[in-house]
Deep mutational scan, measured.
Amino acid sequence: MLDDRARMEAAKKEKVEQILAEFQLQEEDLKKVMRRMQKEMDRGLRLETHEEASVKMLPTYVRSTPEGSEVGDFLSLDLGGTNFRVMLVKVGEGEEGQWSVKTKHQMYSIPEDAMTGTAEMLFDYISECISDFLDKHQMKHKKLPLGFTFSFPVRHEDIDKGILLNWTKGFKASGAEGNNVVGLLRDAIKRRGDFEMDVVAMVNDTVATMISCYYEDHQCEVGMIVGTGCNACYMEEMQNVELVEGDEGRMCVNTEWGAFGDSGELDEFLLEYDRLVDESSANPGQQLYEKLIGGKYMGELVRLVLLRLVDENLLFHGEASEQLRTRGAFETRFVSQVESDTGDRKQIYNILSTLGLRPSTTDCDIVRRACESVSTRAAHMCSAGLAGVINRMRESRSEDVMRITVGVDGSVYKLHPSFKERFHASVRRLTPSCEITFIESEEGSGRGAALVSAVACKKACMLGQ
């Protein structure tokens, strides 16, 4: 009897593995994704193909990295998701002549009506938060230079001027797309009239992360975010950046690689679950690469896999709870928690219980395998993109072996128990001629924006502006 049951459990697990095998990517698959990513990057950089390229390769006008001589107080704003952060950054000489960066910050959550109302409502709310922060720190009387981390696709015309191309991540505030974001912020500050600010720089969160990590390690020339969304930036040779005049030196390019796949480059790798996630998203047909990796989508992918296993009578005796059938019910943090389970399955059992399920031991094991399959594919897909960037940098610099540091931020990278190990191992397999160091950014977005502002202020002083 026991043997029969054991055989049935083994057969069930084997069927589960057959279904989950769809998520496995072979090294040849990853090399294919990497080569296609490089081709799209090239198209994004070139003037004649930029418009139709899915990977936009947006110039950021960040050319210099901090040298350690900029000092002063800077205000930093960070808008990239449902939370908005205001930070005071003091850049100065530390002990023994070292450079020191001290920060104080406060988080504000953005109400739904500000995210989806008008641009005026959104930026009025942001300036209200700045006003509140300055009151708390008794700094209303000071006109501070301000660095703005704005983590949406922007076409820069200068370091302090950028046109919002399109909202992502659930934002829909009308009247912002096609307009200068810094102008919208300046107008809102003017409307309030109770404080003055000098907006000197606007950067993407990947750029802010790279600059913040450069402060720790001067070989950091790539910034990457794996959180709600997924994106990367890197220092490109100016001669390859056709959208900006000049051939000397390097400029940081914001790849906006989340949109890779929007022209069909990933079609052969998309599964039924991916198509369902895409169809029910706020932007169907867009940001397809990001939807395979980002935390906004990972939990939902797992939920759809679990429903398939229920329908195949391989999980929960073929019956799903009402909660499990509800879109968004299986949160991405559950994926991390399930994979963090120590082996007694308590954590998995508790999560499934909150979803109205009474799982068996085998159910718990199957749910864990589903989570591992989805998150491992995410790590491997992400590795193909980064390997594409790094191999490109090595080739354009004609280096036999390139040493490089990548600064990384984002909740999936930082909080998932195995993502970074799987990701690092896969990147290294795909970049055999590179020695890569990964560092995690601390308060990256805010500190990085302030350091970019410090560079901009120093330049302005040198130019006598």
Rank of each mutant, 00 (worst) to 15 (best):
R303W: 01
G227A: 04
A259E: 10
D278P: 01
N231E: 09
G444D: 07
Y349L: 09
R308T: 06
V305M: 08
E256R: 07
M37Y: 10
M197W: 09
L30T: 13
T354I: 08
V412H: 02
Y297M: 14
T49E: 04
L306P: 01
R192N: 03
G223A: 14
I189D: 05
F423A: 06
Y234D: 01
V406K: 01
L122R: 04
L144V: 12
L122D: 04
K102T: 06
Q219I: 08
L79K: 07
P66G: 09
H380Q: 13
R191S: 02
K90T: 11
N313T: 04
W99P: 08
V200I: 11
K291P: 00
L30S: 09
M393P: 00
D365F: 12
M238L: 14
I163G: 15
T206P: 11
T65D: 02
D4H: 01
D113W: 13
S353R: 03
F148V: 14
A282W: 07
E177L: 11
L20Y: 10
E268D: 11
E112H: 13
R369P: 00
L184N: 11
E120H: 05
L315V: 12
M87G: 06
N391T: 08
V412R: 07
Q26L: 07
T362Y: 04
D124A: 05
R46E: 07
D42Q: 15
D113Y: 13
G178L: 12
R63S: 14
E157Y: 06
A201H: 03
H105Y: 12
S280H: 10
L324K: 00
G193V: 06
S398I: 09
R63H: 08
F152M: 15
M202C: 06
Q18K: 14
D132N: 07
R191K: 12
V277H: 05
V408C: 12
G44V: 01
L185S: 01
H50A: 03
E372Y: 03
K136G: 09
V241N: 03
A11R: 12
F334G: 03
K458S: 10
F195T: 09
I163D: 15
G385T: 08
G80P: 02
R46P: 00
I19F: 12
A259K: 14
V222S: 01
P66R: 12
D267H: 09
V199A: 13
D3Y: 01
R333M: 12
V401H: 15
V452A: 10
Y108E: 02
D205A: 10
E236F: 04
R403M: 11
E14N: 14
G446V: 14
Q286G: 10
W257H: 03
T354D: 08
Y234K: 00
L58P: 00
F195W: 14
A10V: 13
S263K: 13
E421P: 06
E196R: 10
N240C: 09
N166Y: 12
S360R: 02
S100T: 08
M251T: 15
N254D: 08
G80Y: 03
E157C: 15
L309G: 02
D278C: 02
M235E: 04
K136E: 06
T118R: 13
V241R: 00
G147D: 02
M139I: 15
V203K: 12
E48R: 04
G147M: 11
G410R: 01
G446S: 15
E372D: 09
Q219V: 12
L185K: 05
D198P: 12
E96D: 13
S396A: 11
E157L: 11
L20H: 00
A387P: 00
E421M: 11
K32Y: 01
R155E: 12
E339M: 04
D160V: 10
D132R: 05
F74N: 03
I366A: 11
C252W: 06
G299W: 01
E70R: 14
K420G: 09
G68K: 09
S281L: 02
L463P: 13
C434R: 00
P417K: 13
D247R: 09
G299V: 00
A53V: 04
K104Q: 13
E421V: 08
A329S: 06
M381T: 05
C382I: 10
S411G: 13
N313W: 04
R394N: 09
E120D: 15
I348D: 01
A232G: 02
C129M: 04
V277I: 11
L79V: 11
K459S: 10
N313L: 09
I159L: 13
T255L: 12
G446N: 13
D29P: 01
D4T: 02
G193P: 07
L134A: 09
D278N: 09
V16P: 03
K15V: 08
R191G: 04
F438A: 01
E435H: 07
V241I: 09
T362F: 04
K420I: 02
C230H: 00
Q286S: 14
L309P: 00
D409A: 10
R46C: 09
K190Q: 11
S398L: 07
A384F: 05
G183S: 11
G170S: 13
T362A: 14
T431I: 12
I436Q: 00
G147L: 11
I404M: 09
C382V: 11
P66V: 12
I130G: 01
Y349K: 07
C129A: 13
P359D: 00
D274S: 00
D124Y: 01
V374M: 04
D42W: 15
T228L: 14
S433I: 05
D409S: 14
H137T: 04
G80V: 08
P359I: 15
A370S: 04
Q138M: 06
Y108D: 01
K31G: 07
I366E: 03
G178W: 06
I351M: 09
A378M: 09
A425K: 03
K296L: 15
M8S: 14
D205H: 11
M139C: 10
E93G: 13
E265D: 12
S76A: 09
L430P: 01
N204S: 10
G229P: 04
L315S: 02
F84V: 14
E236A: 01
F171S: 11
Y297F: 12
G80R: 04
L122I: 08
G175Q: 09
L304Y: 11
C220S: 03
E440I: 10
K161L: 07
P66W: 04
V182T: 09
P145H: 04
R63F: 12
K32R: 07
D344Y: 02
V310F: 04
L352I: 11
P359F: 02
Y349W: 09
M37G: 01
K13L: 09
K190G: 13
T209L: 08
H156F: 06
G147Y: 02
A378G: 12
R394F: 07
A454T: 11
P359T: 08
G446D: 15
